[in-house]
């Protein structure tokens, strides 16, 4: 197993922390992981993306230049990164904010209205985790249990009350892509 996951969106959408959560979960499961950010000079509101590699064997390069999975949280991210996804890879499109379709035919594409669904379950803040849930369901890159354990580690105690809704988001996301 060697997944290179690219998560991209606006600064402030939480793409960096979602990537960290995923990397942390991989580490909790004893897998090899690396997380690498890339962002514009703007501290807030610019484009932000990060690459997460999760593998069974040592990771040679942490740079995710040919992702197996792309999570596009906004339109510029989809336009910019669609072409680098490996054939047979997966693209998640946040259709709440992206009103175009992916053009690649050789990848699997899932349109998930993540922001709308997050609002429905009670917080727009968990939009990323809706897609993360779908990602876990499809790739089994880490278990939901590992993510739950990691949430307790990475979130400061005063945010632990947000954990149930985060888990709910994972579940909803997983349900969307379950056969």
């Amino acid at each position: 197993m060697h997944e290179g996951i690219l998560i991209a969106g606006f600064g402030g959408q939480g793409v960096l922390s979602t990537g960290q959560l995923l990397a942390y979960s991989g580490m909790v499961e004893g897998k090899h992981v690396a997380w690498i950010p890339s962002y514009g000079p703007e501290m807030r509101g610019g484009t932000a993306n990060c690459g997460v590699t999760i593998a069974d064997s040592p990771i040679s390069s942490p740079v995710v230049s040919e992702p197996t999975v792309l999570i596009a949280m906004n339109r510029p991210s989809l336009e910019k990164f669609e072409k680098v996804v490996v054939p047979g890879g997966i693209i998640f499109v946040n259709s709440s904010l992206i009103n175009i379709k992916a053009t690649r035919a050789d990848v699997r594409t899932f349109y998930i209205p993540a922001n709308d669904m997050a609002e429905e379950i009670g917080s727009s803040k968990v939009a990323n985790n809706i897609i993360l849930g779908a990602l876990l369901e499809l790739t089994r890159v880490v278990t939901t249990g590992a993510v739950e354990k990691s949430l307790y580690e990475v979130l400061p105690p005063h945010h632990h009350k947000m954990i149930p809704i985060n888990l709910k988001a994972l579940e909803v996301g997983a349900g969307l892509v379950r056969e």
């Binding site: 960290q20 990397a23 090899h32 690396a34 997380w35 690498i36 990771i59 942490p62």
Partner: peptide, 9 residues
Amino acid sequence: GVLGQMMEP
């Protein structure tokens, strides 16, 4: 910057 900002266990 890659080494400085990447996270690894």
